[in-house]
């Protein structure tokens, strides 16, 4: 199964603020972009019957409770509506994902963990009739360097799941 661990800052997110600032002040998105928020996403493949014990260990290792909050879902990503979620990850080897996996497996002995992927979900609050087209443009012009990153706009399916809540 796939454990989705979404992590966001409960203190002000300077990185998201800088991205918003750059879009508005430097890249002509004033009046188009209302807000930018960011979550880190760990997608963890695990070979386990009941995942919740494992989840407890994973959260303790990967989430810094002093400044972060998190939400865990199994298999499906339950994203809310109201923003366009752009998932950005590396298409080259991700050293941090590998070291996260090593920490879980080697240091904590969580052998059920088979694979760890890491990405950012940029939550773009866009005021436009063509929100996804704008999100595409922002992803290409700012959020990724195509020589190492790839992006995916998480479309209807994910949001449909969110609306089921």
């Amino acid at each position: 199964m796939r454990i989705n661990l979404r992590i966001w800052l409960k203190i002000p997110d300077a990185e998201a603020a800088t991205v918003k600032n750059t879009l508005v002040r430097r890249m002509g998105f004033e009046g188009v972009i209302d807000d930018v928020r960011r979550e880190r996403l760990y997608s963890i493949e695990a070979d386990v019957g009941n995942p919740w014990r494992l989840v407890k260990h994973i959260v303790r290792e990967l989430v810094n409770e002093n400044k972060e909050e998190c939400l865990v879902s199994i298999d499906e990503l339950d994203l809310d509506d109201g923003y366009v979620p752009v998932k950005v990850g590396l298409h080259i080897e991700d050293g941090e994902a590998i070291s996260a996996k090593n920490r879980l497996v080697r240091r904590l002995g969580l052998s059920a963990v088979k694979r760890v992927e890491r990405s950012n979900i940029w939550k773009l609050y866009i005021r436009s009739d063509e929100r996804e087209a704008v999100a595409e443009e922002i992803a290409r012009k700012l959020l990724i360097n195509p020589n190492k990153d790839s992006y995916e706009i998480l479309r209807a399916r994910a949001r449909a799941v969110g609306m089921r809540q």
Binding site: A14, E15, T18, V19, T22, L142, N145
Partner: peptide, 16 residues
């Protein structure tokens, strides 16, 4: 620059 936010160099590259 800009604490390498987003990725190293990108935010500064958008400055006027």
């Amino acid at each position: 620059s800009y604490q390498d936010r987003l990725r190293a160099g990108v935010i500064a590259s958008k400055e006027p």
